[in-house]
Amino acid sequence: MPEGGIAVGGVLAGTMTSSEPEDPDAALMPRIAEGDASAYRLLVDRHADRLLAFAERLVGDRATAEDVVQDSYLSLWRTAARWSPQAKVRTWLYRIARNAAIDRVRRRKPTVDPETVTLIDPGARPDRAVIDGDIGRAVSAALDALPERQRAAIVMVHYDGLSGADASAAMEVSVEALESLLARGRRALRAALSGQRDDLIGGER
């Protein structure tokens, strides 16, 4: 298995506890590490679409998101031997994809501060999109304006259905830190959309 790919840090992704169901992808990883392409392709079938959606929400454009997913799977193919059975494969993939997204954006913007980076240039402001009558775009624009860490946390938990434990492992933070990111992100979204919330959701509050 050649070296290279995206650095995924020391401890590899979400730790599993004995109470959790067994990771259905775990048995594939040793086979991939041995160069079994059919095992690798099973992981493409199981996760590629969801990873593409995650990457697109994170970086904001389709072409870069596809590059991110390619980077991620290349890294998976090359570094499967580094995967630890304590980590869920799906969580590990999310970590690789997020690192790949940050890496891609850093190449475009070399002086990015990971604490404040938004990854996406928020072109359309929420209020502009609301005037256009496009709720989805308004919310997308508000999401795009969030710092990357807050946005990644919200995308993983709200859209991709990762548990707090898995999302925190994918982001290499504690569950408490993840919950803080989620709460700050949701608060910022509420503030960005507060003026239009009644219009957007038909008065529901």
Binding site: L52, A53, R62, G136, V139, H158, Y159, L189, R197, L200
Partner: peptide, 17 residues
């Protein structure tokens, strides 16, 4: 929180490729 969830759900899901 329901209201914000509804807004988040209004964002279309990116299509597979």
């Amino acid at each position: 929180a329901h209201a914000l969830d509804a807004l988040l759900n209004a964002v279309p899901t990116p299509s597979p490729s």
